[in-house]
Design a protein around this nucleic acid. Structure first.
Lengths: 180, 180
DNA sequence: TTGTACGTACAGTTTTTTCTGTACGTATTG
DNA sequence: CAATACGTACAGAAAAAACTGTACGTACAA
């Protein structure tokens, strides 16, 4: 094994490690491989570059680069004289984490909150129903209690996302370990 | 639509909302449905209960309850005189979030860190190789720089996980919004 | 204007994941 | 000691996701 092969092996280990954990970002392993490869290339790449490098179709590259882009793991960059789209990985992994966290959870909180609001309104209305029994009323009250509890939880989650988005999380957990 | 149907509709909305976001916990929608159903039942359930309630096989219930259990979303509970396994959802959603975060990310950090350590050692050794050229040496140095950077990042992530695990996150983002 | 290069929508295929039914090991009951 | 109840391993079926090749719309070049 020559030096170049050893270098490749070292890179491949890291890339595979990324590939096998990228599901935490909601992406399939191949997108992780794409990201890993781009991480070690020290230049923006075109879809054809990626296709050649990974031995996968250009269509796949196009699809997964969009996912990577939406998850804010890569940026499209521009270079004069180059007609093809160029992409490169973001270099601030702390920010990548914060962006992923923010994008994924904000969306979830939004969907959940809307559902809770609707159901709460329905249940409050339902309490007035003519055919209401004491038994059913008790169940409804319990459900309302549950919904109020999870609404409070989602409010906390929303504030947690704010703390990440506003970089306040770095006050709690500083980027650099203090020198001894 | 009678009152009971309206109640069901309200519950179903919440359950579906959970089902469609449970992928954030690395679980399939059906596990989310299972969790949602259990959330509204005010008693521990057996596998047969769940199977009947969701119209799915007992085998599936067994498999997904294990996933839910590993993700720390449900607990197995004991009741005297009952031979079947009983499960109920955890009632502290804040803690559920913290546990999920901790479990999933701790594992990722551990795997990544091991890979980085190995590759760093290899690259440092590789620098001494006989057939080393200036050009290749420069590439190796660049790779080492990259690995040192992401090692630092994973160290931060590890400390972030600590902050969740130690409940310090609730200092930064309190559970209850202060009264006005 | 015509020709060429590029990215992606779409349909079909392959691969992976989820779900089911059977069968079996263990534990409890009579 | 049976006999029964229970949970799950395992193999196959069904469903979902990922991947490919073709075809098309758009933009730039000549």
């Amino acid at each position: 094994m020559d030096a170049y092969e050893k270098l490749e092996k070292s890179r491949k280990r890291i890339t595979e490690s990324i590939a096998q954990n990228i599901h935490l970002y909601g992406l399939p392993p191949s997108a992780g491989r794409q990201f890993g490869m781009m991480f070690f290339e020290n230049r923006p790449l075109t879809l054809d570059d990626m296709s050649a490098e990974l031995g996968m179709s250009k269509t796949s590259m196009s699809t997964s680069i969009r996912s990577l882009s939406e998850a804010k793991l890569v940026d499209r960059v521009w270079e004069r004289g180059v007609r093809k789209d160029l992409y490169e990985v973001k270099d601030d992994w702390y920010q990548i984490f914060v962006d992923m966290f923010t994008v994924k959870w904000r969306r979830a909180v939004s969907l959940h909150t809307a559902a809770i609001r609707k159901s709460l309104a329905e249940l409050k209305e339902l309490k007035k129903a003519d055919d209401m029994t004491d038994e059913l009323l008790a169940v409804i009250e319990t459900d309302i209690e549950k919904l109020l509890y999870i609404r409070e939880y989602y409010d906390w989650l929303d504030r947690l996302i704010d703390a990440f988005e506003d970089q306040k999380i770095f006050d709690l957990v500083p980027r650099l370990e203090e020198e001894a």
